[in-house]
Write a protein that binds this DNA or RNA. Structure first.
Lengths: 179, 179
DNA sequence: CTTACCATGTAAGGCGTTACATGATTCA
DNA sequence: TGAATCATGTAACGCCTTACATGGTAAG
């Protein structure tokens, strides 16, 4: 019944390289932040559960003063990940608060909606900038790792989406100010 | 701390017209389905809580054999809604499973990813068709209600996004098949 | 007469967040 | 020496979903 998508997110990250929980969090907040997020309060318990179920193993790194817990995916974990990766996507869950605020715009009034649109434009612009930078970086290191091509895919999805959002902002402003 | 966005969704719908819980569910599943969803298991309890807090009132319709519970928003509820509507959006939570499966594509392989892209294209095409129809309908009744312009806004957001997704599908296929 | 839709709810449980708690290391 | 970052975890709680439970009404 359960989704437990964080299982797959973590296993996916570990399938690329071994990491600590802290690094996993960091990776989610940088590489995946445009389409996923997670907190420590879910990452650490998930990591434990992954080890219990045999999908990951933990080793301790004593080279630094503070002992780090470094996780690796097991063969069984890789299979579990691949199984999920092969299932068609059921569930693209968009919960888009901005659209809610536009949809109910008649209650708040035109100026409020115009404000939301202008906020959306600013947020989108700055995200787009980041993605454009990421695109450049990825194109420079494309041949270093076959996974990079897939990372680039998600970046380009974002770039196209954000450009569409910006065009929408222009259209929406026109719709609300022209008459 | 709490979000309770369903409060606002329901109040927003009720601010347009009185409805039963069943009708609210239906409205969410048709008008809002591209950016929101909710189950009966959350709608009915939320409706009770809204009444308890004085944001909505319930009356019984005995004109049919089965008694219907019809809800209306109160003045206090309208204020509560407007307050939220005026706050800038914090939280556009995208949890995009498709992108996860693309991002980890190196684990599943090119053909699996190509499959996800082709699924995405089909889903997007059919959603786009629906939105295009909705756009036509809304444009025909635009002057009947000032709220319709705001509904049209969200439809056009969807249209632009989905067209961007379709373009992305073409680009992604090229990236993966050309070499 | 049966299928689809109208209509209302509850119970269990899952997933995940925020807040709390702690402490080492690095760099200016 | 203080701030930022590295690093790991737990506790409480909130929101929501799925599954269950029940029955009326309309149309073919």
């Amino acid at each position: 019944m359960t989704e437990r998508k964080l299982d797959y997110v973590i296993l996916g990250l570990l399938s690329h390289e071994d990491m600590t929980g802290y690094e996993i969090k960091h990776r989610i907040d940088t590489a995946l932040k445009y389409f996923w997020k997670a907190s420590y309060g879910s990452i650490y318990p998930t990591l434990n559960s992954l080890v219990e179920r045999g999908f990951a193993v933990k080793r301790e790194d004593n080279e630094t003063a503070r002992t780090k817990q470094i996780y690796s995916v097991t063969l069984k974990g890789r299979e579990y990940l691949r199984e999920w990766l092969n299932v068609p996507v059921v569930n693209d869950e968009l919960r888009y608060e901005t659209l809610l605020k536009l949809f109910f715009g008649n209650e708040s009034g035109r100026d409020t909606v115009l404000g939301h649109i202008s906020d959306l434009r600013e947020r989108t612009r700055s995200s787009l900038d980041e993605l454009l930078t990421a695109e450049k970086v990825l194109m420079g290191i494309l041949d270093d790792d076959p996974a990079h091509k897939y990372y680039l895919l998600t970046v380009r999805f974002g770039i196209r989406s954000y450009r569409a959002y910006l065009d929408f902002c222009d259209e929406a402003e026109k719709m609300l100010t022209e008459e």
